[in-house]
Design a protein around this nucleic acid. Structure first.
Lengths: 290, 290
DNA sequence: GCGGTTTACGATGAACGTAACAATA
DNA sequence: TATTGTTACGTTCATCGTAAACCGC
């Protein structure tokens, strides 16, 4: 019995196929076959039912599954608490939404790379919908997005929310939402839908709405006087300081943006777990300073 | 990280030396060195303090110790509950005291070998004192002896006790303990000391006492009319049936013999654990039939 | 010098990848 | 035919044992 065999077994059971497990573990499919065969041989019992298309866990396999989880959990605890993480190398893939990228993400990256000086970071800034998709397909280790990600497999750590304020061009005449276009988040996002509902109900069903996946581009459009919209102060700060945009109150309060640090719960990834904690701390500190 | 490395680490920590661990695991000492070195390399932290004579666990090593125990515990659970034990091979070393050997040991061995048909059994019949010593030096896997063995490392499962009855030769005149020698257990045993105390107090301090490590030999001596003594009925049965010895009541009640199935708790040995349970069951069934 | 650990090195064997095969839908 | 698991086989790399070096009582 080896930890590699147990790992292979767990992935085959989780993903429901030798091939998928092979891909996950960066091995060829026969290698997985061998590992499972060796394990079945040692335990003198079949672990999977190979009935044509699709594997099923046998009774013994089901039993092993919980033990396998326990064992690899302990292995992870060792890596986390016993191993010296200072020398840890590897690649850590972080996804962040633009609001975070423009606010405390630099602080977070600084803190993270201080704790894990040998880890390379791969950063993706995208809209939350895409980050969510990347997380679920294991292309990201940690996502800092508008959450929570409501999947049983995902752990969500709540981050401080961002209040939204309305902005218009500094030289703008008093704003009438019925005639001025509103620009905001990408149409695929939850805040967009909320904003649309709000505008339709309280202003007019025919309000013009622009959307953009880039919040900073949106703010430039606002500065140009082409639209107005609700944004976190963190993003607007620079343009406000330059005197190009100002806050105004259209009498419509948009609920704050709720963010989470989200990662897949299984398999355990202590870099993600620890990264989420570091992110929360960085966010809190940034908030206290702003 | 491999289970072999973890196992090696645990044994080095337990036994306090690479050489002893090597012996325990049937490996050469450099092999242990390699395993520990690899583990220390992977965890990027020293696990032992090598200061001249004697190893000490580092802080990280101490931490790892508990995780290692957990991990190997799970491994053992897998072997016990998932693996098909019917095909299990190996050698199982059982020690039993004579009383048990003469009573339900055959039933136990039959039941045990039915559950584990491929396990070879090495049986030692000896006095409890020696069995205890053998158990503690790992020369026995399971000991059925007058227990319990009061060592923190030993697990004791209580077995049904044996009542003691006094026997003398069938043609014996009424027995006077003041003049007839008493024969009983080896001088190194607990029942011997108890018997001596009893005789000194209630009969005479100068009672003649014979001792023998073989209870059946003792009974032959009784049959020959050379002595009398207290024995379990299980051992006397045959000579009673042959009409060569009879029970009598000297007015001295000797407390029953307390037996236990004892085995070392660490490392876990599920054959021993299970063997103890089977032994208890065999003993109970035998008792119900007698 | 002696008990015990580390280092060096050759040999064995476990496990991988490539490739061919088998089975199922 | 496409997909997926098994079998066969050559190769590579990890790990063992032997032997020598090292090190603190």
């Amino acid at each position: 019995m080896t930890l590699d065999q147990i790992t292979a077994f767990l992935w085959v059971a989780r993903l429901g196929g030798f091939r998928k497990a092979a891909e996950q573990l960066h091995l060829t499919q026969p290698a997985i076959s061998t590992r499972i065969a060796k394990l079945e041989e040692e335990l003198a019992t079949p672990l999977f039912e190979r009935d044509g298309s699709g594997l099923t866990l046998t009774r013994q396999g089901t039993l092993l599954l919980s033990y396998a989880r326990q064992m690899l959990f302990v292995q992870d605890e060792i890596r986390k608490h016993v191993a010296d993480t200072a020398g840890l190398t590897g690649l850590f893939r972080i996804g962040a939404s633009e609001t975070i990228a423009q606010s405390w993400l630099p602080d977070f990256l600084k803190a993270f790379s201080a704790v894990y000086p040998r880890i390379n970071i791969d950063l993706t800034v995208d809209i939350s919908t895409d980050l969510r998709e990347s997380l679920l397909t294991r292309r990201l280790d940690l996502a800092l997005l508008m959450g929570p990600v409501s999947e049983f497999s995902v752990e969500n750590i709540a981050l401080p929310p961002f209040d939204l304020h309305w902005y218009c061009a500094a030289d703008s005449a008093p704003v009438d939402l019925a005639t001025t276009p509103v620009i905001s988040f990408s149409a695929k996002t939850r805040p967009y839908r909320e904003l649309m509902t709000l505008l339709a109900r309280h202003v007019s069903p025919s309000v013009r709405v622009f959307t953009s996946t880039s919040l900073s581009a949106s703010l430039q459009i606002i500065a140009a006087g082409s639209a107005v919209g609700p944004f976190p102060r963190a993003l607007a700060g620079k343009l406000i300081a330059e005197g190009r945009i100002i806050e105004f109150d259209p009498g419509l309060s948009v609920s704050p943006l709720a963010f989470t640090a989200s990662y897949l719960g299984e398999p355990r990834n202590f870099l993600a777990e620890d990264g989420a904690v570091i992110a929360l701390q960085a966010a809190k500190e940034w908030q206290a300073m702003n």
